[in-house]
Amino acid sequence: MKKLIYLAFVLVTFASCSTAVIINEETPSVDTGVNPDSWAVIPAGPFYYGMHALPESIDYDYEMMITDVTNLQYSNYLNEALAKETISIVDGNVMGFYPGEPFDNYKHEWEIKAGDYLHMPFTEPGCHVKMLDGKFTVDKGFENHPVVMVTWYGARAYAQFYGYRLPTEKEWAKAARGTDLRAYPWGDEINEHYTNYGSSHNALQRLYGGNISRTIPVGYFNGTTYGDFETIDNRSPYGLYDMGGNVWQWLSDDYSKVHYRYMRGGSFTNYEYNIFVWARNDAGADFYNINIGFRCARDIVKAEPVVEGSEITEEIAE
């Protein structure tokens, strides 16, 4: 009997050591009704920054995408960029030029010289943007999921291609928190009805069962009831969805002495303390992962910003 128990223990241990990839390449499509091409205006003015809520201010209006960039948006960009030869394909990787950065020769600082850098390893598991017959396409059902497996270089290149930019940490923080002291973009509470994070059960897995996708479509948590699962609208005070949870978001800042690239928002793998509006993460600019994406910011050039629906416009006007 003892031997049997021992054998069973060993078998279970080895079985659970499997390195099989669990991310599938197809998932049921879910229409959230949120348009990822929409932007929201973040007005100039004071706000509270960081865990210690220090008074800060941004003295210009700017816009940010109301959702993370989706797989479909990124795939379309890759096709356009490939046609215009601003990117290249090398051994299953999207590569692109980066002009380099000033080097301070500080302890642990690595130098980033001008050259071609990795944007997206599209042949690696976990990447839902694929290349078929020379064209980039998206795994079925993942079109409106946030793009992941994209490096900071890849995120920057996307933004630059369309005349946008990545938001700075402060821009992101104001867009997420607004002008009050909330801990999460939607308020001070968190549970599985607000967002996709480490302590929630993946909403798509609830809906369709099985071990399917770990990201969920952008704008999923908008108050809609999917099946018998109710979501709560998780928009930030300025109308941005998913500023906490789902995927980390690359930001633009390059601080002196280091070349880490910072991220905010937390992801589906993280517990709640990573979802706080002040929580930061960072990695090398060429790092990519299944839980890192981005959204863009842009300066306001038009008198009337394009925003989604009248609600946001009214909110801003208030």
Binding site: C17, T19, A20, V21, P125
Partner: peptide, 18 residues
């Protein structure tokens, strides 16, 4: 041990369980 995060789940399950 397993650079690709998509393949880490098995190791994570085992180590967390143990």
């Amino acid at each position: 041990f397993i650079p690709q995060e998509v393949a880490q789940q098995g190791l994570m399950n085992t180590t967390m369980l143990l």
